[in-house]
Design a binder for these strands. Structure first.
Length: 139
DNA sequence: GCCAACGTTGGC
DNA sequence: GCCAACGTTGGC
């Protein structure tokens, strides 16, 4: 199983909206970046990811599970763009902020720190465990 | 609201 | 195929 991070502006698509979709989940659509798309193509059903709020909140707020592999993005006719489907798993007891992540030397290599603009990114297993511990999330 | 960083586009 | 211009993102 691999680990990822999905970034969204809460004003566009929030954790609460994702939770409201329940086990049906929702497309992670709207990605128009090749790197992010390529990571989605690597995803397998059952992979886990963090749900991160950018902009005002800047924090990991929960975990999600990939429930469908990459398929064409229904929000565009451009066949270059694909997306996976994800469903909410667990809400963080304590959201882990970008400040906390930056303050932890064990997390200094995270893509979130190094390339803040990438909206879909891989997370190492070690990083996953550290942030789950900080958030009060089941690993 | 600003600006730096970065990705994409299009002209050559 | 290069590179300048432009648009977008996201942290501050």
């Amino acid at each position: 199983m691999r680990y990822w991070l999905f970034k969204s502006e809460p004003s566009t698509w929030s954790w609460d909206q994702q939770v409201a979709k329940g086990d049906t989940g929702e497309e992670w659509d709207g990605v128009r970046n090749y790197q992010a798309r390529n990571f989605m193509r690597e995803m397998a059903v059952g992979d886990r990811g963090f749900f991160y709020h950018s902009q005002s909140e800047k924090a990991v707020v929960g975990t999600v599970e990939v429930i469908a592999e990459a398929h064409p993005d229904s929000t565009t006719d451009d066949d270059r763009w694909e997306c996976v489907d994800i469903r909410a798993l667990h809400a963080a007891k304590t959201p882990v902020t970008l400040d906390q992540i930056k303050a932890d030397p064990r997390l200094s290599d995270m893509v979130l720190v190094k390339n803040s603009r990438l909206s879909v990114q891989p997370v190492s297993k070690a990083e996953w465990q550290i942030i789950c511990d900080m958030a009060g999330l089941p690993g």
